[in-house]
Design a protein around this nucleic acid. Sequence first.
DNA 1: ATTAAAATTTAGGTGAACCTAAAAATAAAT
DNA 2: ATTTATTTTTAGGTTCACCTAAATTTTAAT
Lengths: 219, 219
Amino acid sequence: MISFAEENYLKAIFKITEKDRKSAGTNAIAQILHTSAASVTDMIQRLSEKELVLYEKYKGASLSPTGNKIATDLIRKHRLWEVFLSDKLHFPWQKIHDIAEQMEHIKSDELIDKLDNYLGNPRFDPHGDPIPTKEGKFLIRNQYSLDLLNEGETGVLVGVRHHLTEFLNYLNELKIALGTELRVLKKLEFDKSTRVRINNNEEVIFPKKISRDLFVKKK
Amino acid sequence: MISFAEENYLKAIFKITEKDRKSAGTNAIAQILHTSAASVTDMIQRLSEKELVLYEKYKGASLSPTGNKIATDLIRKHRLWEVFLSDKLHFPWQKIHDIAEQMEHIKSDELIDKLDNYLGNPRFDPHGDPIPTKEGKFLIRNQYSLDLLNEGETGVLVGVRHHLTEFLNYLNELKIALGTELRVLKKLEFDKSTRVRINNNEEVIFPKKISRDLFVKKK
DNA sequence: ATTAAAATTTAGGTGAACCTAAAAATAAAT
DNA sequence: ATTTATTTTTAGGTTCACCTAAATTTTAAT
Ligand SMILES: [Mn+2]
Ligand SMILES: [Mn+2]
Ligand SMILES: [Mn+2]
Ligand SMILES: [Mn+2]
């Protein structure tokens, strides 16, 4: 039986290695899990013993096929519970992540099947992130970060790069949610900021820092 | 922050002391939690230190007001999740308890408020057990165990004494569920068994062992 | 009242998951 | 190529939640 702590390590390694990197260093893992590098070494050695992780001294850890499946299932559960919290209990998107961090550890395949079905087999979570299938496949969305759009182009918000509460609150205040139309009016060269019209309504200027964190589908 | 293990001990002590007994012995707790008496002593001493439990050497443990509130909240959460699993996900009543044992440990007051509301503020769980209010009040149902009914009397099933899977399966096979009408046709003196008509339909003979575990409301 | 049985506690130990401080290895900078 | 900085591991703790075996206390039986 795998523990919550072990599950969290697998998820952290998944997150670090999902894009480019082919192994996760102890410092990177420690940062995500708010723990020390020494504790991470300790744990990845145990996970390696259990063959959930591939580990070479001083060269970081990566997920074994078994470890990868466990991590993917956790993400599936996490995102399905986020949909439940959002769609059924009407939690705002800033509050769902922390609760889902707890719920993702509940062990019952039947529960997840029924939940998935009950929610209408959603393919994306309330932050726009894809929900892996039972088999572990991720849909990839054809998306651009807003800062890549040219003047005059319009995008529909389909995702956000991260889930910091303050960032999501900021979007709420601007009445920006998934599905919101964002039209690039002007790209200001000198500071890389972007003037944007929100849903054919108000205007706002996004610093590069923000426009890079908004994923849109071109319209 | 209270751990899952600590929560389970508080719940066990609650269960043992809820009716008559005014303190829970180490053996009784050990039996519920499938652990050793020595481990129980260890834990109740820690819980006593935290003032969640009142403890006197060799005289067992009982819940402090704080401990009682935590235990009651756990039961509230457990039973609300059971309603969710039953009503929304259509799990049969034999399967909900084990999953709820995990879900009851999720920490979020807002979650439970919203869940309660979403479920329509149910007062009883799928086994007929009362769901304590937010303030910790239990409704008490005016109920009789079936073996107390006289010949000719009819009762409606409103609860079961325990939740053993085999027992609930047995009731399922007889098409007995909460709300089912049970009419006492004959009480057999020599072995204390009872002949019962189910929903004005089939007949069955219950040994005392069974009829004592069915709670009905007189009709 | 003794003695036997049962319940409870103490003693001593284990593994999981953390920690800090120090040592060792790797990577970066001069 | 050395030196310096960074990353990672090791060494040596701690706390929590369990364990078995032995000692103690309480309860029941003779
Ligand atoms: Mn999330
Ligand atoms: Mn999400
Ligand atoms: Mn239950
Ligand atoms: Mn129940």
